[in-house]
């Protein structure tokens, strides 16, 4: 029975340990969040094969709601320590950088890696995210 109690206690501790403090968002000289700008330079020029395609954008929105909205909100304006995806620090990033960031995440800060999503689906999410540009201050 002692093993049981210790396990339940450790499980509760791990739940509470999941709490993190908000971070200050830093930018590089292009106005891109540092955590995204860490992408290899060669990826900056990658083109999104779905860019501007209405079907892909609708699909990206569907995938966003399935995988991202829980933390970033249905309107993508962020919640708590999850970034507002409409802010310039995200929207100034190139599609290639956003794709890299989706693949790697920022595990230390709580953003999971989405490398388990096939490449095509990640590009579809990027296509949707790019449609949010210019809506940072709009309600």
């Amino acid at each position: 029975m002692r093993g049981w109690r210790i396990s339940v206690l450790l499980l509760l501790v791990s739940l509470v340990a999941g709490a993190d403090t908000p971070r200050h968002w830093k930018h590089d000289d292009r106005g891109v969040l540092i955590v995204i700008a860490r992408a290899p330079v060669k990826l900056r020029t990658w083109k999104n094969p779905y860019e501007g395609q209405a079907d892909a954008i609708r699909t990206g929105e569907k995938l966003y709601r399935q995988h991202c909205a829980e933390c970033h909100g249905d309107d993508a304006r962020g919640r708590g320590r999850a970034a507002n995806l409409r802010m310039p620090g995200v929207q100034n990033a190139t599609p290639g950088e956003l794709l890299w960031f989706l693949r790697n995440g920022n595990l230390a800060a709580g953003m999971p890696s989405w490398s388990g999503l096939p490449l095509g689906r990640r590009w579809q999410i990027v296509a949707y995210l790019k449609t949010l540009r210019g809506q940072f201050l709009l309600q």
Binding site: G18, Q66, H67, E70, C71, G110, P112, G116, L117
Partner: peptide
Amino acid sequence: SPRMAAQEPPYFVAYSHHLEEPGN
């Protein structure tokens, strides 16, 4: 209602490097 979707591979015995999303 539609919400979270997992991305882990479907194995029963083998494990991949995909972890549970934080807080889920």
